[in-house]
């Protein structure tokens, strides 16, 4: 009993939830309890998006050192445009639009993998160059595009029932699925194995390259999906829609207790970290601090978390 208690306390993701709660309390205390519920439900709704992008980034980072997807923002921007164009403001085409967005994201993911594999370049540079290209495709494809999302789709992404965002509930279910995918399927186990020790994974008969390809494709697909959903939430596509998610996606993965060195992913932590970051921004907003302070605090929090999580250099 005590041992299991200790094990729970030792989980790094727990701190992000505690942090989120503390920050929320701090914000509520400042407003004198005014808007406590609203803050929470708005926060949860926004956090859901970070969770989806964070999941994409988490899978890629879990593949091991050096793996990271920098093309997610560009991917999301393009996917939001694709989704809105395909839907064309018509509720009947919502599903088709979502599929198109996911397909666009998957294509980018596969392109990323091919660059890494064929050009033998580090993922950071491959996804970076891909993001340049995708950004341009997005700009030229989405030029002058001001398509509103279909009303039904927009409602679906924003509607709240009893203060609870429906989107968020769906994303919670999605997270449970991702948790199962990670821990209870051959694919998830293979990703974790490769991230811990790619050589050992190969020698344990894991098809390393196939899993890598699948992971980048999955990351791209989730990025595409999130882009489309954001377009619904913000009432229209925009190529900049994903911009802030480059840093957020990496931040929620790191704060959420996923190992930056790969091999260990944490889905629960993504929620804690996303809530924490959203709540932090909410709190700073209620305090009325400037955007500068918000960014400064976010940056320092990320550094503090990684410094705490990192171990000292092993002297030899």
């Amino acid at each position: 009993m005590i041992a299991s208690m200790r094990r729970v306390i030792a989980q790094p993701w727990l701190y992000s939830f505690v942090g989120a709660a503390l920050v929320w309390i701090a914000a509520v205390t400042y407003t004198g309890g005014y808007g406590a519920g609203g803050m929470l439900s708005a926060g949860i709704a926004l956090a859901a998006f970070s969770v989806i992008v964070g999941t994409a980034q988490m899978f890629v980072i879990t593949l091991g050192p050096g793996n990271v997807d920098l093309s997610l923002p560009a991917n999301m921007g393009l996917a939001s445009a694709v989704a809105m164009k395909v839907m064309g403001g018509c509720d009947a085409l919502v599903l088709v639009g979502l599929v198109a967005a996911i397909a666009s994201g998957t294509t980018i993911g596969i392109a990323n993998y091919l660059l890494i594999r064929l050009l033998r370049i580090p993922p950071i540079i491959a996804t970076l160059s891909a993001s340049f290209v995708v950004q341009s495709i997005g700009i030229s494809y989405g030029r002058g595009l001001q398509v509103k999302p279909p009303p039904g789709f927009a409602t679906a992404t924003t509607v709240q029932i009893a203060g609870v965002s429906v989107m968020a509930v769906v994303v919670v279910v999605f997270s449970v699925g991702i948790g199962l995918l990670l821990h209870r399927t051959t694919f998830g186990r293979s990703v974790a194995a490769i991230g811990q020790n790619a050589r050992a994974a190969r020698l344990a008969n894991i098809p390393v390259e196939r899993i890598r390809a699948l992971t980048y494709a999955l990351g791209g697909a989730l990025g595409g999906l999130c882009g489309a959903l954001l377009a619904g939430y913000f009432q229209g596509s925009s190529l900049d829609i994903g911009n802030e998610y480059l840093l957020t996606s990496i931040a929620v993965v790191v704060i959420g207790g996923t190992s930056v060195a790969g091999g260990r992913a944490n889905v629960t932590g993504l929620w804690g970290a996303s809530l924490f970051l959203v709540m932090l921004l909410t709190m700073l907003n209620t305090y009325g601090v400037s955007a500068g302070v918000r960014l400064l605090v976010t940056g320092l929090v990320i550094i503090a978390v990684i410094v705490t999580a990192g171990g000292p250099r092993i002297a030899r």
Binding site: T186, R189, A192, Q196, N197, A200, A201, L203, S259, G263
Partner: peptide
């Protein structure tokens, strides 16, 4: 370098070569 997955349990380390049979 070639064998152990350091973040996993003993059971997971043993099972990794037989995942297909656990399905």
């Amino acid at each position: 370098t070639d064998g152990v997955f350091p973040l996993w349990s003993i059971a997971e380390n043993i099972g990794v070569r037989s995942l297909a049979r656990f399905r």
